[in-house]
Amino acid sequence: MVSIAEPLPRYAEIRRALEEKILSGEWPPGHRVPSEHDLVAQFGCSRMTVNKAISALAAAGLVVRRRRSGSFVAAPKSQETVLEVHDIKAEITGSGRAYRYVILDRERRRARPEDLARLGAARGSFDVEALTVLHFADERPFVHERRLINLAVVPAAAREAFAASPPGTWLLEQIPWTEAEHIIRAENAGADVAHHLAIARGAACLVVVRRTFQAGATITAVTLTYPGERHQLVARFSPATR
């Protein structure tokens, strides 16, 4: 027996079409959704149907409705694409928020055993640049970053002031990576991280540990700690083909 799926209600079809533009990135955060008048003309339906579709998107947190201004693609939480090496500065500015960063600590040193472990190096004698950076979105602490840069791979980092761009942005612009590794875990904020993120000590945090490589050598190892209630991970993928 063949089961025939019921057709979607008209408002659900419209919602799906608009949702696809949002989730695909064609409409980024802050993008103005076409007016109800324009959508009525585009989809050949009533204004009530369009309103129902927009209301459903708003209820799902995908759009924000502003009186007398219209509807806009929402960015209620930071979204990190799990399988990409993203640029924090671009992520924040792309969502329409003001960005700044502060380098809390910086040290050039010979790689210690714990540094080698973070970089995934079994042994070696080379220098690293160790940095602690705090990123802000609209003057609110966004993410705490601990980064090691392998100076044997990126010697120019020792001379870079990181005055115009944060270390992560600078690295993405300066040196191509060929492989990346992510570890994602939950942690409770320690005193130092909690202080800088302006959250309670012991608050739930989302931690992303990332290493990037070039021809097998580790470029950088970074630990990004986000306030858990303000960050989510997003992955979009297709079924594997056989």
Rank of each mutant, 00 (worst) to 15 (best):
S125K: 13
S125M: 14
F126K: 02
F126A: 06
F126G: 03
F126M: 04
F126H: 10
F126C: 03
D127Q: 09
D127F: 00
D127P: 05
V128Q: 07
V128N: 02
V128F: 00
V128P: 02
V128K: 04
A130G: 13
A130S: 15
A130I: 01
L131H: 05
L131V: 08
V133Y: 03
V133W: 03
V133A: 01
V133N: 04
L134A: 05
L134R: 04
L134G: 08
H135I: 13
H135G: 11
H135K: 13
H135L: 11
F136R: 08
A137G: 01
A137H: 00
D138V: 11
D138I: 11
E139F: 11
E139L: 13
E139K: 13
R140Y: 13
P141E: 07
P141H: 10
F142M: 03
F142Q: 02
V143F: 11
V143N: 10
V143E: 09
V143D: 10
V143G: 10
V143K: 06
V143W: 09
H144M: 09
H144R: 00
H144E: 08
H144Y: 14
H144T: 06
E145A: 11
R146G: 12
R146P: 05
R147Y: 00
R147P: 07
L148W: 10
L148D: 10
I149Q: 07
I149Y: 09
N150W: 09
N150S: 11
N150K: 12
N150Q: 13
L151H: 00
L151D: 07
L151N: 01
A152Q: 09
A152K: 06
V153E: 02
V153R: 02
V153D: 02
V154M: 01
V154Y: 03
V154H: 03
P155S: 07
P155W: 08
P155A: 02
A156P: 06
A156Q: 08
A156S: 04
A157I: 00
A157Q: 09
A158Y: 02
A158I: 04
A158E: 09
R159S: 11
R159D: 13
A161I: 08
F162H: 05
F162T: 05
F162M: 06
F162R: 03
F162S: 06
A163P: 15
A163N: 14
A163E: 15
A163S: 15
A163L: 15
A164W: 14
A164I: 14
S165G: 12
S165Q: 15
P166M: 04
P166C: 10
G168S: 09
G168M: 03
T169G: 02
T169R: 03
W170Y: 01
W170I: 05
W170P: 07
W170G: 00
W170M: 04
W170L: 01
L171W: 01
L171I: 11
L171A: 08
